[in-house]
Design a binder for these strands. Structure first.
Length: 755
DNA sequence: GAATGCATGGTTTTT
DNA sequence: CCATGCATTC
């Protein structure tokens, strides 16, 4: 046993040891980026089990993503044995919440009115239900956008505010409308036997309120609770954790206030800042030594985050080598930006013998990923995208999943609408027929689908419908009658085959045009996805699969087969990850900081600070090399908009920064304001950077033979001849891949390759 | 009820 | 620019 102890603590620095071996009681670990946070958490758990004799099943660890939970489990298993680590509860707040609900189906149904076969509604489902809500309260989605209502409801829920409280405290007309919408939303949600993401945290709390003996059971069980990324927890999560830790008070939380980036999701930074006030005699350990990044990267990160006013002053330290300077590069537009990233990665792979998976390309908004993805697609570099158009968000995937959800939960109104609208089995049933069925279902006191199943079995008279609608209604009832039976006895993939057959979806897609065939391919991927659930008991497999689908995060898709691939990822999703080489793209006003934060600059300065933290998160993902790019012109909604370099570039200390220079040509759309742009640059953002000479009035640089250039269409090439033509130059260029071309310097979108 | 065509507006970030 | 939603037509 004692040898295990030394093994466990070997290689940890004194602060890390202090955290890992912290005595019982509430503990706060403030962990700077790259300071070994995950190590501390995994070693702490291993230490608790092997040294303190805590049984694994009495440990609860909450992480931000399922991937983090998976990795943490593996790491603990490596430290002690797999057997010893078995039984630990690890997952996200949401998956843990679902688990609590699933473990108490009786109470859930009796006290909270949610049946055990509930459906988890995602963002799109919520939107759909909110449209109904807005109509029901007599409003128009045009002046009451579902998005707004949704975020308001989520804010209510995150603050544990009930519809009645919302109505009572409403101060304005808008508040009243929102409160009404909230109440109606809850009504429809419960009628569909569905829960939203917030419910997954709130319902357990309510469960505990109505059944203290259940809470006590969990309090007893979870002797040690550990929470990662504590800076991004919200009020509900705090209440849940606080309740569970009440008995043993062994709450070990790890986080970094400087990396709090989910304020918009009601994350409350006070949870971490006030931890020592909330929990008596909480100990605190600060991890400040960065082991991840070069000294220059650490210095740059520190300089950036220091500009936030609302923060605890801390200084990051590192013993690592200086490393290379951080590279800054301006490009003509996002096309050039993407090409630059691709060619630079290719160069580094060659010159520094790096692998694709050593690189990450980050961006603020998912929309930016498109152009980048395209550039990678035409290149031969393998890549993977995190947070683009999600697979599960594709229409055909949602359609087929809706058909499955309906098997488990026939009350799921949103799914039945989806199936009827989009699948052949619903043909013949329009809004009018649905209205009739809804009325009929109230009279027969069954859910519409249950009623139709009964009709198909000749147990009930069909609703008053015209011929075609009647046939369709019976057909759908018969289909689900059969699917419900099959679900109990068949493996999931066989059930899949039955679903696509009985809904007619296979016939529609598999025999359609190319477009439809592509959709069919995606639907088949769902089938492949289901294969790993075939070993589960029929009757349980589907619910487990649907739950997994509802709770996967974008980053969860990043797994073992990421080997060799460049990662394209949003800054938000990149939290917690690290890469030898990082590119942060789109460092422009309106993008990073995002426009909404810029607009709120004076009314809500915290918004810009959060953007700065996001930038900080991006910077601190890099181990060896960091590139920051921005463009002079960005194509948004089919228009080129002049880009303004981000204010955040000002805070980069110039001794650690290398300006790779600007684009040397006029942008392809013809002479967007290079001069105007240059003024903005030198006057505003680049002032602290190494001044790069901007030749006055020379909008087109003088080219000479022998120079290597890059052309977005033709790729790399070498200038072999230059002919002067009254203020312009005609260039003969030998392209590596496209042979010789003659181009006019003033028109060609070419750039000098500087290396 | 389905197909076609036109208008509109949308880009934060995600469990 | 694109996807979505609505209106018009058959």
């Amino acid at each position: 046993m004692s040898t295990t102890s030394t093994d466990l603590l070997a290689g940890l620095n004194p602060e890390q040891v202090r955290a890992v071996t912290a005595p019982a009681g509430p503990t706060l670990v403030i962990a700077g980026p790259g300071s070994g946070k995950t190590r501390v958490l995994t070693h702490r758990i291993a230490w608790l089990i092997s040294e303190q004799g805590i049984p694994a099943w009495r440990i609860l660890a909450v992480t931000f993503t399922n991937k983090a939970a998976r990795e943490m489990r593996q790491r603990v298993e490596q430290l002690i044995s797999t057997g010893a680590a078995a039984g630990m509860t690890m997952g996200t707040f949401h998956s843990f919440g679902v688990r609590l609900l699933r473990e108490n189906p009786g109470l859930l149904a009796d006290r909270l009115g949610v049946l055990r076969n509930f459906t988890i509604y995602d963002d799109a489902d919520q939107q759909a239900i909110l449209k109904q809500v807005i109509a029901n309260i007599g409003r128009d989605p045009k002046d009451l956008p579902p998005r707004r209502v949704q975020s308001r409801i989520s804010a209510y829920k995150s603050g544990l505010i009930e519809p009645a409280d919302a109505a009572e405290t409403a101060a304005t007309y808008d508040d009243e409308v929102m409160a009404r919408a909230y109440a109606e939303y809850q009504r429809l949600l419960r009628r569909a036997n569905a829960v939203d993401f917030d419910d997954l945290l709130i319902l357990p709390i309510k469960l505990f309120d109505t059944a203290p003996e259940v809470l006590e059971k969990y309090q007893d069980r979870f002797e040690h609770i550990l929470v990662d990324e504590y800076q991004d927890t919200n009020r509900v999560q705090y209440v849940l954790v606080e309740a569970l830790a009440q008995k043993h008070k062994n709450l070990f939380v790890v986080g970094d206030p400087d990396q709090s980036i989910y304020r918009w999701r009601q994350a409350d930074i006070r949870n971490i800042l006030d931890f020592q006030k909330s929990f008596d005699q909480a100990q605190r350990v600060d991890l400040e030594v960065n082991y991840r990044s070069t000294a220059r990267i650490v210095a740059v990160a520190d300089n950036v985050i220091r500009l936030n006013r609302d923060r605890i002053d801390r200084k990051l330290r590192t013993d690592n080598d200086d490393g290379d300077q951080v590279s800054i590069r301006e490009l003509a537009d996002q096309q050039h930006e993407a090409d630059f990233v691709v060619s630079e990665i290719r160069r580094l792979m060659r010159d520094r013998n790096l692998n694709g998976d050593d690189f990450a390309v980050m961006y603020r908004t998912t929309a930016q990923s498109r152009v980048l993805e395209e550039a990678f697609r035409v290149s031969d570099l393998p890549y993977q995208i995190v947070g683009g158009v999600r697979f599960y968000d594709r229409k055909e995937v949602k359609d087929v999943l809706a058909a499955f959800k309906l098997i488990v939960n026939p009350n799921d109104t949103i799914s039945i609408e989806r199936v009827i609208e989009n699948m052949p089995v619903g043909r013949g049933l329009g809004p009018k027929a649905m209205e009739t069925i809804d009325q009929w279902s109230i009279v027969t006191r069954r859910t519409p689908l249950d009623g139709l199943i009964a009709v198909a079995r000749n147990e009930l008279d069909a609703p008053q419908l015209s011929g075609a609608a009647r046939t369709a209604a019976i057909k759908i009832g018969a289909a689900y009658d059969e699917l419900q039976k099959l679900e109990q006895i068949e493996p999931l993939t066989d059930l899949f085959d039955a679903v696509v057959r009985l809904t007619g979806y296979r016939d529609q897609l598999a025999h359609g045009d190319d477009d439809q065939l592509e959709r069919w391919e995606n639907v088949l991927e769902v089938r492949a996805d289901m294969e790993k659930y075939d070993e589960l008991e029929p009757g349980e497999a589907l619910a487990a699969y649907l739950e997994q689908v509802a709770l996967v995060a974008d980053v969860d898709s990043l797994d073992d087969d990421s080997r060799g691939r460049v990662t394209l990822i949003t800054l938000h999703s990149a939290k917690g990850l690290e890469f030898p080489v990082v590119f942060i793209t789109g460092l422009e006003e309106g993008l990073l900081p995002v426009s909404r934060a810029v607009e709120a600059e004076f009314t809500d300065p915290a918004a810009i600070e959060e953007e700065r933290r996001l930038f900080y998160v991006g910077i601190t993902r890099a181990e060896q090399l960091l590139y920051i790019t921005y463009v002079a012109n960005r194509l948004t909604w089919g228009r080129y908009q002049p880009g303004v370099a981000s204010r955040f570039l000002d805070s980069l200390p110039h001794e650690h920064v290398r300006d790779l220079g600007r684009r040397s040509t006029v942008s392809p759309r013809g002479g967007m304001s290079l001069t105007g742009r240059a003024q903005t640059l030198s006057g505003l953002s680049m002032s602290t950077l190494k001044p790069a000479p901007i030749p006055p009035k020379a909008q087109v640089r003088a080219w000479s033979a022998g120079e290597k250039i890059f052309h977005p269409k033709f790729g790399e090439g070498t200038i072999i001849e230059v002919q002067e033509r009254r203020g312009d130059q005609e260039l003969a260029i030998e392209f590596t891949r496209h042979g010789q071309k003659r181009l006019l310097a003033s028109l060609a979108p070419i750039e000098l390759i500087t290396d």
